[in-house]
Amino acid sequence: MIAALIFYMFAGLAVAAGVMVISARNPVHSVLFLILAFFNAAGLFLLLGAEFLAMVLVVVYVGAVAVLFLFVVMMLDINFLKLREGVAQYLPIGAVIGLVLVVELGVIFGGWAFAPDVEALIRAPAPAADQITNTEALGRLLYTDYAYLFQASGLILLVAMVGSILLTHRRRPGVRKQVIADQIARTAKNSVEIVKVPTGGGI
């Protein structure tokens, strides 16, 4: 009873926040509503007993990704009211595309089934999931049965990271960088010179 109430609270808030994300006028408010939606999703995970996933969702999406979103949105210099000017004009096209997508998704998920030999490949955690904490259960699955897939996804992320650094990094000429080793290696001997200046002569 109470669990059902809490579920409907989280689910309702998540949907409401999702609607606000696309309808809020101020983009910063959009991101803040997105964060609210993430939180409610984390709450739903908690209700399912997936506490690890709930915490990771908060750490990764709310703690890091959304901060960067907010960061970028705050720095953008775009007149968002101007962007919305043609909304009425484009609305029918957008609605049609959305409808087509919904129908397609419905068709796919309506006929969704696992092939029989795939079902045999799905692994269950070695001790049943209710006997150990779900952090442990997830870890055992990821690092034993799915180790290669896990490594592969890590590699994909690494490539993406290297790629984005490569694309955005630019060498600027004429920038003086601080080299801490040089600073530490400086001694009085090689940086100070004592000169006897003859009066009226200068150096």
């Binding site: 964060i35 915490m55 709310v62 703690g63 901060v67 907010l70 952090t135």
Partner: peptide
Amino acid sequence: INVGILYLFAISSLGVYGII
């Protein structure tokens, strides 16, 4: 709770929102 450290980590990573 079984994920106490993660919970603390999650909460401390949210601290930035108040400031931003």
